[in-house]
């Protein structure tokens, strides 16, 4: 209940193949909160410092302080309306904080060119947002040069390289979302923001996208994945941050929240130990 709680991304153990599809016991989710580490190999990709975002007199985010690491999948979870998507949108400056600071690799986001930043910090949205036209037309928006790079992008997400001429509206939801991921990868991002990208997908398509993304994290990409599905959190998270009503949950609240869902006991209460 401490609104100024500083909750660094909670460390989870490293993912192993044995974890695939297995919800880990909540105790294994928990690790000691890490101390500030803004240099060296543990330098966070994003640091939020006392970030508040007010919209229509409501604090969508309330003095949020947290960090997201490099080369791993950080999951941002919490109930609907907790501010997860808003927090994600602050990372590529689709929104800006009312007060507080967001740092990207130690530099204040407000001082960076937003257009260059957005090419380094790619985003995949909740619903597949293919533009009108073919996949090639879509990819040309991200990378006008096209050619081999477009085919490589399709292959990178497991779609046939000869699909460039295929109209976007002929794809299934899962294929479209993979095409959106491919389009995002064409800007050469070092961070991927995934805003509940599997919310409208069936389980097989969800697993495909999860595996693609965790694979990208293994190659060194930082992934911040918003999800309210805690079995998904268990499958993909290296670290997690729990948001409750616009603020970062205390360790106790986070444990209770994650435990509640993993044990399928319904929505977690605020009964922090």
């Amino acid at each position: 209940m401490n609104p100024t709680a500083s909750a660094p991304a909670t460390g989870l153990r490293a993912r192993t193949p044995a974890d695939e599809g297995v919800a880990r016991p909540v105790d294994e989710h928990r690790a000691e909160p890490g101390g500030p580490a803004e240099a060296g190999p543990d330098e966070p990709v994003f640091s939020f410092r006392d970030v508040t975002l007010r919209f229509d007199a409501t604090d969508v985010l309330d003095r949020v302080t947290c960090r997201f690491g490099d080369g791993c999948v950080s999951v941002l979870t919490g109930p609907s309306g907790a501010g997860k998507t808003t927090l994600l949108r602050l990372c590529n400056r689709l929104d800006v904080p009312t007060t507080g600071t967001v740092l990207f690799r130690g530099r204040d986001l407000a001082t960076l060119d937003p257009l260059a930043l957005r090419r380094r910090v790619g985003m995949v949205f909740q619903r597949p947002t293919l533009f009108p036209g073919t996949l090639g037309d879509n990819f040309a928006v991200a990378a006008p040069a096209g050619g081999r790079a477009h085919e490589d992008a399709l292959e990178a997400v497991g779609l046939p390289a000869d699909w460039l001429d295929r109209p976007g509206d002929q794809l299934s939801g899962g294929e479209a979302q993979r095409a959106c991921l491919a389009r995002t990868l064409l800007t050469g991002p070092e961070v991927l923001l995934m805003d509940e990208p599997t919310a409208s997908l069936d389980f097989a398509a969800t697993r495909t996208l999860e595996e693609l993304t965790t694979g990208l994290a293994r190659t060194g990409m930082a992934v911040i994945w918003v999800s309210h599905d805690l079995s998904q959190v268990a499958r993909i998270a290296d670290t997690s941050v729990v948001l409750l009503e616009g603020r970062v949950a205390t360790d106790g609240e986070a444990t209770a929240y994650l435990a509640g869902s993993v044990r399928h006991e319904g929505p977690p209460g605020g009964e922090a130990p």
Binding site: N92, L94, R118, F125, T129, P132, V141, T184
Partner: peptide, 20 residues
């Protein structure tokens, strides 16, 4: 809105993102 923001998220300027 989501399409426009998807264009912005690819690094397009507001002018380019709004053109279509």
């Amino acid at each position: 809105r989501s399409e426009v923001e998807a264009r912005l998220a690819l690094g397009l300027s507001s002018r380019d993102a709004s053109r279509p």
